[in-house]
């Protein structure tokens, strides 16, 4: 009879914790039994079920944010082994051990791994990342979108406002007010839409304000970090082009 039982394997986690927004962070280690197919979220669930740290002391369960568990909602962004990414897609089998988990400190930390991504949603409001179609009467059908354009625009629409690109960007920090790559890419998306295009200038104006497009330093980490593979640097360069054109048009009054 073949040997089926193997020695129990443990996975070590080093988690950066913080009790509340004001307190300082500290590190706590956990050791969990390995299960096939486990990911960072299932490990955090295991800690929640049995909150005992590596020393064997019982502790307060680690808090985290998650939602869809299939890398489309953007809620579970955290820094795993130094890389900002989605925890639900971080399979333990693919990670170097011990697994180091930290919150994305570019954002205000609420507690443990929970961060406040409000600035990302404020950024979308600032650049008017929507298409105004509401009126007091039926505005009728809008212009059609060419299929070819729809295909690349769809890629931009995959953005889930997860904040990974902001965490990866060396120019998004406490010394700047740079809006970050995500909102810039959304401006490209809505400016590409045949109806959205009608308000293109408003979005460009917003990105020419302080903390706008000029904050980009071309490190191009964002495009490497984006979990959805959005061509963020192409979006930034395209918006550079649009804002430059817009600037000259404004000067010349055309």
């Amino acid at each position: 009879m073949a040997e089926t039982a193997t020695a129990p394997k443990n996975v070590k986690f080093i988690i950066t914790r913080q009790d509340d927004p004001q307190s300082s962070s500290y590190v706590e280690e956990f050791e969990l039994p390995y299960r096939p197919g486990m990911n960072v979220i299932s490990a955090l669930m295991e800690i929640q079920r049995n909150p005992v740290n590596a020393k064997g002391d019982s502790t307060v369960p680690v808090c985290w944010d998650s939602n869809c568990l299939e890398e489309v909602c953007g809620a579970c962004s955290m820094v795993i082994n130094g890389k900002p990414r989605q925890a639900c897609a971080a399979l333990i089998d693919n990670l170097e051990q011990p697994v180091r988990i930290e919150p994305m400190k570019t954002f205000p930390v609420v507690r443990d791994l929970v961060i406040d991504r409000t600035r990302m949603f404020n950024a979308l409001k600032r650049v008017k990342a929507w298409i105004p179609i509401d009126g007091t009467y039926d505005l009728g059908p809008g212009p059609r979108m060419p299929e070819k354009k729809r295909q690349w625009a769809y890629e931009l629409s995959k953005c889930m406002t997860c904040g990974v690109c902001l965490e990866a960007c060396p120019n998004v920090n406490e010394k700047t007010d740079f809006i970050g790559p995500a909102a810039i890419s959304q401006v490209r998306l809505f400016n590409a839409h045949p109806t959205g295009e009608m308000n293109a200038d408003e979005r460009l104006d917003a990105l020419m304000e302080d903390g706008g497009i000029d904050g980009c330093g071309n490190s191009q980490n964002c495009v490497r970090a984006c979990p959805k593979g959005i061509p963020l640097t192409t979006s930034i360069a395209e918006i550079n082009k649009q804002t430059t054109k817009h600037m000259f048009k404004r000067w010349l009054g055309v």
Partner: peptide, 24 residues
Amino acid sequence: YIAYQSKPNLNRFNIERNWRYTLQ
């Protein structure tokens, strides 16, 4: 001032473009 505003992260993103950003 631009250099002062940056927060290099080569430890996290040890990639060519990020090196050039930092070296710039």
